[in-house]
Write a protein that binds this DNA or RNA. Structure first.
Lengths: 196, 196
DNA sequence: ACGCGATATGAACGACGTTCACAACTTGGG
DNA sequence: CCCAAGTTGTGAACGTCGTTCATATCGCGT
């Protein structure tokens, strides 16, 4: 079975990189630290991955899967659409708080100027948006699929913006209860409008 | 007058760095490029500024001033509060589109792990939020000052989130008209709720 | 046991931000 | 006008980073 060994190293490297990002943050990730902790030579990273960015994308891919399943869990009791929107927003906030650095890495990472993000990874991001489409469609049945998708993106962006700026060191930290309350009100404003 | 010469170099360096960020983006900013274009030695940058991050903050400070005055202009015809909110959101979007890289640098730049953003620069960011407080106070007179400030932050974050994710390379570009329409609807949802 | 393609290795490379010993300049008092 | 003392300018050098590559080692089919 060709590639098994290679895959084992790949998984180890992703494990180690994930831990490093979780603990120290994306900006402090170093190829030398990762390979040392993974017990392999510096150059081996470049046998397993094209470069450090692809390793980071592998970590982000994992994080996105966990985030998506957290959102799925938030809908597991088949709530009414307005409640579903609130559950999704709260689940997003919870995930961001509980996985601060890994979650931040999803949006802070930048490809080098001459490279673009691979399609398979872009699709993983869009999966997040589409989680919103079901409740949106239920709240506003008149919307066609395309408008629905557009609206999902917008609402995701708004919620994401609130969570991101709140958790950024740049600004004064917010009291968790205040943040929760603000988020609930924003989602309420959005769902109320969708009904009309 | 001591420091005049030093101030002239400082201004030149900020000018050059600003142009570089505008054209190539923050990630491509190099100390060597800036000093070469400024006509000074590499080391002179470190006489004028503590380090490269402080030079970037100087550029960001300029951008924030321009952004703030763009927001002020959007309110210059003393519109009714709901209209004021729409004007502010549109002005924010316009500024972001017209100054993509400089605007992105405001939020993409990160301090090294052992340093924090100076207070004077944090205050400049908060000025942005406070632009929203007047129309919010008019729409919801029952809110006390502190809640008003909190709400301003939230609404800013939501609008910012929509604009930021739309302009990010990460995701498929949106049609400008669609973006404009989504933003208008979101602000409408927010102002409608503030009235109740 | 042998040979050959795949994988592992870490020294070396170029680019980067930053420092520092030294040179050039500026200024004020004799 | 000159010199000394402080200030500013200079770019080679340093440490760190991601990445490469010649070389060594491994693993498997024969």
């Amino acid at each position: 079975m060709a590639g098994t060994k290679r895959d084992a190293l790949r998984r180890t490297l992703v494990d180690v990189a994930e831990t490093h990002i979780r603990v120290r943050g994306l900006a402090a990730l170093r190829a030398r630290d990762v390979t040392k902790d993974a017990g392999c030579a510096l150059g081996s990273l470049y046998n397993a991955f094209e470069d450090l960015d692809l390793l980071i994308l592998a970590v982000n891919s994992r994080t996105l899967k966990r985030l998506d399943s957290a959102l799925a869990t938030a809908l597991s009791n088949a709530p009414a659409p307005a409640e579903a929107m609130q559950n999704l927003a709260r689940a997003y906030l919870s995930f961001a708080v509980d996985n601060r650095q890994l979650w931040a890495a999803l949006f802070d990472h930048r490809m080098p100027a001459d490279q673009t993000i691979p399609d398979w990874h872009l699709k993983e991001h869009e999966t997040l948006f589409s989680r919103l489409m079901v409740p949106i469609g239920q709240l506003a049945p008149a919307l066609d699929e395309q408008t629905c998708a557009l609206r999902a993106r917008t609402i995701f962006s708004a919620v994401h913006g609130i969570v991101k700026l709140s958790l950024e060191d740049r600004f004064v930290a917010l009291h968790p209860d205040a943040l929760d309350s603000e988020l609930t009100q924003m989602v309420d404003a959005i769902t109320t409008q969708l009904r009309n």
